[in-house]
Structure formats: structure tokens, C-alpha cells
Amino acid sequence: MAAFGTVFMPEMALTTFEGNRWSDAELVNAQAIALHPGAHVLHYSSTCFEGLKAFRHADGSVHIFRMDANIKRMMQSSRLLSLPAVDPVQLGQMIIEVVKKFAHDVPEQPGSMYIRPTHIGTEAAIGKAAAATLSSILYVLLSPVGDYFAGGAKPLRLLLEEDGMRCAPHMGMIKSGGNYASALGPIARARDSVDADQILFCPNGDVQETGAANFILIDGNEIITKGLDSSFLHGVTRDSLLKLAADMGMTVSERNISVEELLTRAAKANTEAALSGTAAVLTPVGTLIHQGRDYAVGTGLAGPSTLKLRQALNDIQWGKTADQHGWLTRV
């Protein structure tokens, strides 16, 4: 199978913002877009995106998972980046229409159709380093995918980074490409130096997130993750898993957790850790690397609560259990 996110459907939904209004959305060739070399996005990073999925159910129907939550977050990202305000109704229609067009290409379980709405500033104005773009493009790409991690549910190795940050603190809750780019160098060095799969950014000992996913700690019946603030991405999958954990009777603790507490709890036999995200779903963490030493999380293997939560989420997405939270949109 091709690498995750490298295969695309031939058409995408697209609308442009010009003259203080959005154009009617249309399906266009997904091979390219036209941009002036002075486009705002190329010089001042006025860009944000979303990631959500559509799933094929056993009866052949196709359902999009938590589209409304992703649209709401894209509106927030666009606003905080001073991009033109996104029309949530139009974006929802664009997502549904392009998924409907390629519904037959949505993979069977365990695959899905990854949906990537993207918003970029297009005004040709290299003098606008301190001013917002007046024009933009909003488009929706589709990519049929399998598992994000090639090893499936194989436990990951995380390097705890206490000196650096993934991004500027006030930018963390924005899903913008620059936040991911700033983490690439540290992640590459961590892979080369200690064979880490990802970095868990813990500035000044405060456990936050990895370069591309939220972090969750499970200690017995308690699920612990950092409380929402501006420093990290407010994951839709994170939110979904916390709701499912509460449904299962688990204690949900959204609060700060220090590296010291993390390592202390990780030493307990019944502790589990995992990364959550649209692509990662819920992927177990088996090892934490801190100051040159490896610390096993619990048994070092995928734990029962991690697997149970992942399965519960997948079962809703694939229509195997009732969608009691109203998360699915049928196309």
C-alpha cells in the first residue's frame, strides 16, 4: 500500500475569497492550484488545515466523523491567523459533495477516506508582513488511507523534550503548517540519536503534546491529559476519546502533568500511554526516553484500556455500535 496521504482523488472542492465574498464552490482538478509567487501564504504562512475521515459501513453507506467539530476548529484557526472568515455551511456542503462524488473510492475497513480542508492566503503583497491577506482559497482534498503508523498498534518510543516547544504558546491551538514544520528538526534528531518515533514536548517540565498528536496517560481507571489552553492543539479525537472514557465509567482528568509525575506513574504496572489524532487514532506508547534513559510505560506493551478505547472509537466510526453522540454525517 502507498504511504499514508500520498494518493489523492482526481478532483477537489474549491472556493475563492475575493472582493469580500466567497465564490460558489465547485469541483476542480486536484492536480494543481495557481498561485502568484508573491502570495501571502508563501511569505507569511497564512495557512491552516483540518483532518477528518469518512468511513464505509457494512451496508455500503459512507459516513463522515465529527465534521461539525472540525469545521468549528477551522473557523477558529482562520480567525486567529487573520484569514477571511470561513462560511461553515459552505464548507460543510463542500466536504459532503466531494466525499459523495468519490464515495465508491472510500476504502473498506480498516481503511478510510482522509479529508483535508485547507485555507491559504493568496493576495500578492510581499509588503504585508504585518497585515492580513485580503484574498484566499479554501479547498478540500481527499486521500484514501490505511493505518498512519506502518507498524499498526506497535508501541511507540517518545523522547521527552523539556527545553524546546512545538510552537509559540499562543499558536498551539491553531492547526497551521508552521507548527508542524517547527517540530520536524527536533523529531529527526530524536530519531537519529535515540531511535525515538516522536518527541513529547514538555517545556519546563509541562507535558504537552507530540509533533503531530495529543498525549494521553492512563493510570488504572483514570485517564489524564493536559487541560485545554492556547499552547497545544485541541484534538477532535482527544475530545471523542475522553467522552467515550467517561461513558465507560473512567475518571477523566484534564489538568497539567509534570515530567516527574509522568515518569513516576509510568513505572506502575497498570499504567498506559498513547497518542491520539485523526491519523493516529489511539496509538500506544511503550517507552519514554528521558536524559539518556529508557523508561517503560507499564508493561511496555499496548494496554487493555488503550485497545478498548481505540476499538470503541473505531466501532462508532465503522457503524458497528450506535452513534449515541451524533458524531456521524451520512453522505
Results as ranks from 00 to 15, higher is better:
285 V>C: 07
186 P>M: 11
93 Q>L: 12
43 H>S: 07
94 M>K: 02
189 R>Q: 14
225 T>Y: 03
300 G>P: 05
18 E>D: 06
327 W>N: 14
297 V>Y: 01
258 S>D: 15
17 F>I: 04
197 D>W: 12
283 T>S: 12
9 M>G: 00
274 A>Q: 01
310 R>M: 08
259 V>I: 15
85 A>M: 06
317 Q>N: 13
102 F>R: 03
62 V>Q: 08
113 M>N: 01
273 A>P: 05
175 K>P: 04
317 Q>F: 03
59 D>H: 03
107 P>D: 07
233 L>D: 06
123 E>S: 14
17 F>P: 07
205 G>T: 14
265 R>S: 07
207 V>A: 03
75 M>C: 13
220 G>P: 10
298 G>L: 00
306 T>V: 13
221 N>K: 12
108 E>H: 10
74 M>K: 04
280 A>C: 13
108 E>A: 13
291 Q>F: 10
169 P>S: 11
215 F>E: 00
206 D>A: 15
179 N>Y: 10
212 A>M: 07
272 E>R: 02
238 R>Q: 05
260 E>R: 05
113 M>Y: 11
11 E>N: 03
23 S>V: 03
17 F>W: 09
190 A>H: 00
73 R>D: 09
131 A>L: 09
161 E>R: 02
240 S>D: 04
108 E>R: 02
16 T>K: 02
298 G>I: 05
236 V>Q: 01
220 G>N: 10
272 E>W: 02
220 G>A: 09
134 L>K: 09
178 G>F: 08
49 F>H: 11
177 G>D: 09
131 A>W: 05
308 K>W: 04
57 H>D: 01
289 I>R: 01
265 R>D: 01
219 D>T: 14
319 G>I: 08
81 L>G: 12
11 E>D: 14
121 G>E: 08
132 A>T: 14
300 G>H: 03
220 G>E: 10
290 H>C: 12
152 G>F: 00
57 H>N: 05
148 Y>I: 11
